[in-house]
């Protein structure tokens, strides 16, 4: 009895010893700065001087004085709400293809995943070249194959976001891998039973594959929305927020305020508003999940 108690205590101590570093790291390097940035969001804080309390002035400025936060939020929402569904569908369809017994399947899987491990900056510089309207490969192919005069892509306020969405398709490798794992988790018996019942390929897809994949799609949707609302590299490297602020992503504007404009307090307020927006959207998606996400074994009302 005593020995068992001693072992339990020892395990508890070991538990805290092992989680301690991670917990300390979380407290000091994540939670601490988060709380500090919340405080700074109510301050005029230029980094090089001590913060000065200004109450809600930063939030007031953001919503009623400065036009760029709303502009950048609109740009980011456009990029997210158009880009994320397209990427979700593409991830799912490509995963379906890669799940089939294809010749060279491993090669295709590797090739499709490769762009995901390339640095975002390198990828951005590559796409600047590809999307160059006069010398780029994209417009060259549009003209040679389809006879279409391609747009000015990154130089056009109307086309810059679609161009960046097209580019973002290169980063779907991670989502494909998750979808593949989901597809391989669907029991073969379900398909066999459906075949015995005379189900067509489309019916199997709609009645078995898609419902079983909804938890995976749900996960990819959440991560996609969070990631795309934090998009930064493309605007920073490829367009500088232009032309005419058409690609001024919210986080890019936040960065400018923090490190170029000496407005860390204002940038902190921008960050907390973004946090609230992402939190609200995640909450909404979670609430909607009961209507469209199917978990095996759960009771559908």
């Amino acid at each position: 009895m005593v020995l068992r108690q001693s072992n339990t205590r020892r395990e508890a101590v070991l538990f805290y010893v092992f989680v301690g570093p991670a917990l300390l790291g979380l407290l000091i390097f994540t939670l601490g700065p988060m709380v500090a940035s919340f405080y700074f969001s109510f301050c005029d804080y230029e980094i090089v001087r001590a913060p000065e309390w200004v109450g809600l002035a930063n939030y007031h400025k953001m919503f009623f004085v400065d036009k760029l936060p709303l502009k950048s939020l609109g740009v980011t929402a456009y990029y997210s709400f158009v880009g994320v569904p397209i990427r979700l569908v593409a991830q799912f369809l490509v995963a379906l293809l890669l799940n089939r017994a294809l010749f060279g399947r491993s090669l295709f899987r590797t090739v499709l995943y490769l762009p995901s491990i390339v640095s975002g900056v390198a990828l951005s510089l590559l796409w600047v070249w590809l999307l160059n309207p006069e010398f780029g490969l994209v417009n060259y192919l549009l003209w040679e194959v389809f006879g279409i005069q391609g747009p000015r892509w990154l130089s056009s306020p109307d086309w810059v976001i679609p161009a960046l969405i097209v580019m973002s398709m290169w980063g779907i490798g991670g989502g494909i891998v998750i979808c593949l794992a989901g597809l391989q988790g669907i029991s073969e018996e379900l398909y066999e039973a459906a075949e015995l019942d005379g189900a067509s390929g489309l019916q199997k897809m709609l009645r078995i594959t898609v419902p079983h994949m909804t938890p995976v799609l749900f996960f990819n949707l959440i991560m996609g929305i969070i990631g795309s609302f934090q998009v930064f590299t493309q605007g920073y490297v490829m367009t500088g927020g232009g032309p005419s602020n058409a690609s001024l992503f919210y986080v890019l504007y936040l960065y400018w305020n923090a490190f170029n404009y000496f407005r860390m307090g204002y940038a902190s307020a921008l960050a907390w508003v973004l946090f609230a927006i992402i939190l609200a959207m995640t909450g909404l998606i979670f609430r909607s999940s009961s209507a469209w996400v199917y978990y095996e074994g759960s009771v559908q009302m």
Partner: peptide, 15 residues
């Protein structure tokens, strides 16, 4: 610990 981290982060800078 959190309070200490917050205090450290909110402390005036050395300038």
């Amino acid at each position: 610990l959190g309070g200490a981290a917050l205090a450290a982060a909110c402390a005036p800078t050395g300038t």
